[in-house]
Structures are given as C-alpha cells and as structure tokens.
Amino acid sequence: MSTTWIIVALILGFIVVFQIAKASEYVSILRGEEKTRKQNNRINGFLLLAFLVIGLIGVYYCNQTLKGKILGESASVQGEKIDTMINITLVITGIVFVITQVLLFWFSYKYQEKEENTAYYFPHNNKLEVIWTVVPAITLTILVGFGLYYWFQITGEAPKDAMVVEVTGHQFGWEFRYPGRDGVLGKKYFKEIREDKGNPLGQIWSDKANQDDIYTTTTVHLVVNKPVKFIIGAKDVIHDVGLPHFRLKMDAVPGIPTTLWFTPKFTTAQMKEKYGPDFEYEISCDQMCGKGHFGMRGIVLVESEAEFDRWIATQKPQYVQAMSMQAAPANTADSTGKAAPSTAGIALK
C-alpha cells in the first residue's frame, strides 16, 4: 500500500514539474527573454515558500505518526537521562532550525528581484556578529555541560553490589562469562584459547577463581532492578555492544577491556506484554566487523531474581566441561577455521 502511495507521489511530482517547465516555455515565447526571467524568478520564489510550508507540515505529520513508536521508553535507569538529553537537544536545535529556515525562505521570497527593489548596501555590523556568535556559544556550552554531567554519572564506578558479566565479541557472535559463586572472574590468556579443548575464552585452569566460572553464548541473563557491570572485550576485531533498548553502547576492543554498567528496569516478560510476544532485548554489533556483521546479534534476557537463580543453578561451570573433554582427547583438529595458536599448556605452570 505504502509503495503505491510513494509511486503515485513520485509520478505526481514529475507531472507538476513538467507542467511548470512547459508553461514557462510558452510564456517565454510569448513575452521575450527578459520578462520570462522575472516570471521564472517569481515562480521559484513561490516554490521555495511552498517547500517551507509543505516541509513543516511533513515534519509535524511524521512526528505525529511516529511519536512514541520509535523505541518506546528506555529500559534502563541510565537511559532515561539520555532520553532527556535527546529531547532537550531536539527542542533547542528545533527552535534554531525553525528560526533560520523561516528567515531563509522569507528573505528569498521578500527580496527577490523586482523593478522597484535594488540591493541594499549592508556590508557588515559588528554588534550583530557578536550576538550570533555569543548566543550559540553559550547555548552550546550549556548543552555540552549537561551532557558531561550525565556522562560522568553514567560512566562512573559501578555500585558495589553490581552483578559482573564478562562480554566477549568474536566473528560473529557474543560470549558471556559469569564469575560463579566466588564472585571473581578467573584469569585468562588469549594463547590458551582452544575451542576443541572446551576453552573458548582462554581461561587459565590453574587459577582457582576460574573453576566455578559459568560460560554461555548468545543469551545473557540479567536481573531486573539490579545494577550490572559488563566487562567487554573482543577476540579478533573491534565489535560494539549496542543496546538500543537500554540506550547504551560500548566498543569491544581486542586487547583493551572496556566497561559499562546499567540497571535494567523491566523484565523481558513485561516488555513482551507491552510490545507483543516477539519482543527481545537485542545486542546488536554496531561496529563493522566483517562479512557476518549484519547477523551478529545477542539477546539480553531480563528476569526476576528468583528466575535468574533457578537458571544459574542449572548451569555447569566451564571447568567441568573442559576437564571432561581433556579426559577424552578431541579426535578432530581445530575445526573452527580460526587462527587459534596451538600453544596450549605453555602458560600452565
């Protein structure tokens, strides 16, 4: 349906422009060149005014249609502040936009070439220049200042009771590690990475803290209203943890861990009630990472504390898995096709 409308609008646009062109051609034959030029000038002045009116109506219509449907309410406490900032910025830049555009179109219409209208000699005025330098500078300072204030709040230290999850990006998927019962993530070293030996993250098994760490892929489970701190890294190229529903984003840079913390406000079940049964919180990879970039997605599952505890109780630490695989040596070579260094064991002391 919408396709038909767009096509109809396009065809109408073509016809209008074509008719105007044809009319102006006849007029030019009848009136001679100089008059045509002036006629033409009037038509264009008028078209510009029409463009302004139609444009403003279009913006209003677009706003009415899409209002509230774009992303819905922020699903994290921190995201509310970002939404506030976006709204404030939209209002301020919107005011500036309307003022400059109305002036622009009004000037184009009013000061178009006419018999009685000669150009006015007005080379400069320092007072005006100062006004339109200082006012935007102050406005921008306030906006950026507010931005920094919120930013420092959001990126500051995570609360002490925050749950910690390690997020690792690879081509093309997400891996997660929970610290387990001891609350400490064990040490890891990238040369230890051996997927065939059940060690996809390169955990060092001699480190006791590693032995209860829980490893999952694709879906990360979080607890509603409990702050969570992501420690983000990457195995190969730069990825990006994009969380549009929570209004957050952080790059996953190989070799340089980054952190991010936030507090989810609604459980996935609550969101499903609101937006339909297909709703999932999504982790989209927002940094171009190669061929499969478009399909690199993860899911955030926000649950109640009880549901989370039930889930984590069913998870076995990766250590158990790895030990059982080492007991029965893998009969295939590294089948993942990745350049995993085969130096396992060197760092094991």
Partner: peptide
C-alpha cells in the same frame, strides 16, 4: 560556532538583496 557564524552571514547577504533564483 564558526560554522554557525557563516550561516548567519550568508543569510545577512541575502537580506535586503535583489535575489535571482
């Protein structure tokens, strides 16, 4: 800011002109 200044100056150039489209 300097980019904004330019936009205002171009508007100022159009002000009171005899514009040919």
């Amino acid at each position: 800011v300097p980019t904004g200044i330019k936009i205002f100056n171009w508007l100022g150039t159009m002000y009171g002109g005899s514009i040919r489209f």
